[in-house]
Design a protein around this nucleic acid. Structure first.
Lengths: 227, 227
DNA sequence: CCGGATAGAATATGATCAAATTTTACGCTG
DNA sequence: CAGCGTAAAATTTGATCATATTCTATCCGG
């Protein structure tokens, strides 16, 4: 199947052993998180079976999971599409992200080792390169990787899961905004976060995280209202 | 199919028009929320196709959705089961519920009408009857209905969705605790919530909600650690 | 402008294959 | 001779697909 080929190019991990519906889920999740799918775009089962070269059942299962994640919406009349966000949606997500993710930052600050902070700093440097190069897709991937790596040390899988769910919701819209404004104006409070981690300053980390979120989500809200 | 029969007994709503996978999802969701499934219990696809009288595909889709909801867990080796909660899980859920649900209470307090408050009060009276009768299943249903009805006025579908996801996670464990302790010792801060709503006192509503959550979840944490 | 025919897409089933667990039987050791 | 451990077969369960049915939307004719 075609999915295997994609994986083989990227990295030959043990993902081949995973069931196909899991691979389809991960593939679609990446496409949503990193903006290969446009808000409002219809998602059809048959289109995916054709493009991915797999049967209908795994595709159906992956789509159901993504609907429960809020990453896709079921439009009642059997249609599935990528969500368009309203101003109210964004406002709710700002609240939820700040509540959840500042706490994740606090907990990670308490647990993280120096080596792990070094790794985060390396990620952030690569992120800066992406911004300089104007690579929107690369920016989105590394930004996600940075937050995921940071939160992974919080020892709070349920909170991480809630956060991931929120990222899936705004992924496509964030891509649109980045594409419109370019990477230059993108927020990067990661330096502040890293400083706070080095100081083991829990509240400073929380504040920096909240500012990172407010800046990014605020930009998205402005862009979607004006456009 | 057998699902139709169950619906016909309860209430002949327009659920018959919904696709079967949706009906299966709702059926399983109820069973999880109201404790018909025990933590640790294995959930098999074929068992559900037999007991519900439907094909495999709709059952598979419903299970995938519930896994994404955190209501069921995928045990790696293809097995699916009802989650057993750790102390850390409960602690995270207390934090998340208080963050999200107090905000939902705040927003509802600002929007709710007097007639809607009357309806909540009626729900709470029926809840008291359930506690007096020792009807655990009825208590769980009405407790859920009360919170759902309250939050529905917050005009915040994304936050409601996050909260619902959390309820699905602790549903089975809550049932165990209620069954062990009986309904007498169950928390009911709903009177305080209703008073706060009538006063249109946003912060009082938030505090009462937080106390309701802390009390219920705390009891669950104690029970699961000692048992 | 409205209403029926048609095409296309989604839903649902059963069949088939693959994987994992359990059971059983055999052999080895104490 | 008894008990334990291991290995292989059988059973159970999951994963995928191909096919039939049902529903929706669009288009064409009146």
């Amino acid at each position: 199947m075609d999915l295997i080929k994609n994986k083989a190019v990227a990295a030959l991990t043990d993902d081949e052993k995973r069931p196909v519906h899991e691979q389809v889920y991960r593939t679609l999740k990446s496409q949503i998180l990193f903006g290969d799918l446009v808000p409002g775009q219809p998602v059809t089962i048959q289109g995916l079976t054709d493009s991915l070269g797999v049967g209908m059942t795994p595709v159906r299962e992956a789509i159901r999971r993504l609907i429960s994640d809020g990453a896709l919406i079921f439009q009642g009349n059997r249609r599935v599409s990528v969500p368009l966000l309203s101003a109210g949606d964004i406002e709710q997500m700002i609240f939820a992200r700040i509540s959840i993710e500042t706490e994740l930052s606090r907990r990670s600050t308490a647990n993280i080792t120096n080596a792990e902070i070094d790794y985060l700093e390396k990620l952030d440097q690569r992120l800066d390169n992406m911004i300089a190069d104007g690579d929107v897709s690369g920016y989105l991937r590394l930004n996600h990787a940075f937050h995921q790596a940071l939160y992974s040390h919080a020892d709070a899988p349920i909170l991480v899961d809630l956060a991931e769910r929120l990222w899936l919701r705004f992924g496509p819209s964030l891509r649109i905004v980045c594409g419109r404004f370019g990477t230059q104006s993108l927020p990067d409070r990661h330096k502040d976060i890293i400083l706070a981690l080095r100081d083991r300053d829990v509240e400073k980390a929380a504040v920096a995280t909240a500012q990172d979120i407010e800046q990014g989500m605020g930009m998205m809200g402005d862009a979607l209202n004006n456009g």
